[in-house]
């Protein structure tokens, strides 16, 4: 029993890394642009199918699919931000309702485009990545899951360091806090929006390439990840970086542990359930600021 619990916790930490990465990147996009990006999960789908495509032509490994996914989704993010979001931007923020409706349409468009291109079948990246495991006593850690965790942590840390220590990172924070004042310092808000959306999307794309070796890729996979990204930032607190990280791991662990009591398949209520509980008890989330602003 103890071993089971330990195993599930470890498994949960591994999924949690992906939730944290998704929550973090969704939070970044919302915090800077104020767009409620319902198509965030589709960025993960694009990354996953980039890895699938590479697998089909025989390119595998750990780094290459992730790098390719980052490149592909960065490009997609730039196009979406420039073509679809810029016209909806007023005074340095994307119009909230129009942005959300647009991203909903985009989400449907992208998942159906993937369906048209790859068909409805579940796809899996063959081979190398999924092999290997580390055993600590009776605890078995699958190699690929460790890769996912390490990859998520490296990417999340890279994002945080980038925001904290670079000039562009500072400009991104400035635009997030006050776009009008940011412009008054010579910062081009449209440019920062492009960078932010591409960056946030690329991280979701990287997550997609990381997870495909252990899960299947299918056209509608993005929706569930969008949902979990939102659950993560609602539990962690809208706009809170560390909140998203904390909530991502908590969510992963809670969901994983619940399998002990709930049959797999039924444990899908854990995430949404936790979110509703959080909204009831602490609407601002774990580390979020209170919603009422002075």
């Amino acid at each position: 029993m103890i071993l089971d619990i330990l195993t599930f916790i470890v498994l949960g930490i591994m999924t949690g890394g992906v939730y944290a990465l998704l929550g973090l990147s969704l939070n970044l996009i919302f915090g800077v642009m104020r767009v409620i990006n319902v198509a965030h999960g589709e960025m993960l789908t694009l990354g996953a199918y980039t890895a699938v495509l590479l697998g089909i032509v025989g390119i595998g490994g750990v780094a290459l699919p992730v790098v390719a996914a980052i490149l592909v989704v960065t490009f997609a993010g730039l196009v979406i931000a420039r073509v679809l979001l810029r016209p909806l931007t007023i005074d340095g923020r994307v119009h909230e309702q129009r942005g959300m409706v647009m991203s909903l349409g985009l989400s449907l468009f992208l998942s159906n485009a993937v369906l048209a291109a790859f068909g409805p079948d579940y796809q899996r990246v063959p081979g190398i990545m999924a092999r290997g495991a580390i055993e600590i006593g009776d605890l078995v850690l699958e190699g690929q899951r460790l890769v996912i965790l390490a990859g998520s942590i490296v990417l999340a840390a890279a994002l945080m360091l980038f925001l904290r220590f670079t000039l562009v990172g500072l400009a991104i924070r400035a635009v997030g806090e006050n776009p009008e004042a940011a412009q008054a310092n010579g910062i081009s808000v449209p440019r920062i929006h492009l960078i932010t959306f591409a960056l946030g999307s690329a991280l979701a794309g990287a997550a997609g390439a990381l997870i495909t070796p252990v899960t299947y890729a299918f056209p509608a996979m993005g929706f569930n990840y969008t949902l979990y990204a939102f659950i993560t930032i609602i539990i962690g607190g809208l706009g809170s970086v560390w909140g998203a990280v904390l909530a991502g791991f908590l969510l992963g662990i809670a969901e994983s542990l619940s399998v002990i009591w709930l049959t797999t398949g039924y444990n899908a209520i854990v995430g949404p359930g936790l979110m509703l509980l959080m909204l009831l008890l602490r609407p601002q989330g774990l580390l979020g600021r209170r919603l009422a602003r002075a």
Binding site: N178, A181, A184, N185, G186
Partner: peptide, 18 residues
Amino acid sequence: RSHFPSQTVQENLRIGAY
């Protein structure tokens, strides 16, 4: 609010020197 409340004094000056 011509400044950035959550950034430090030094960061505000750095943004000024963007």
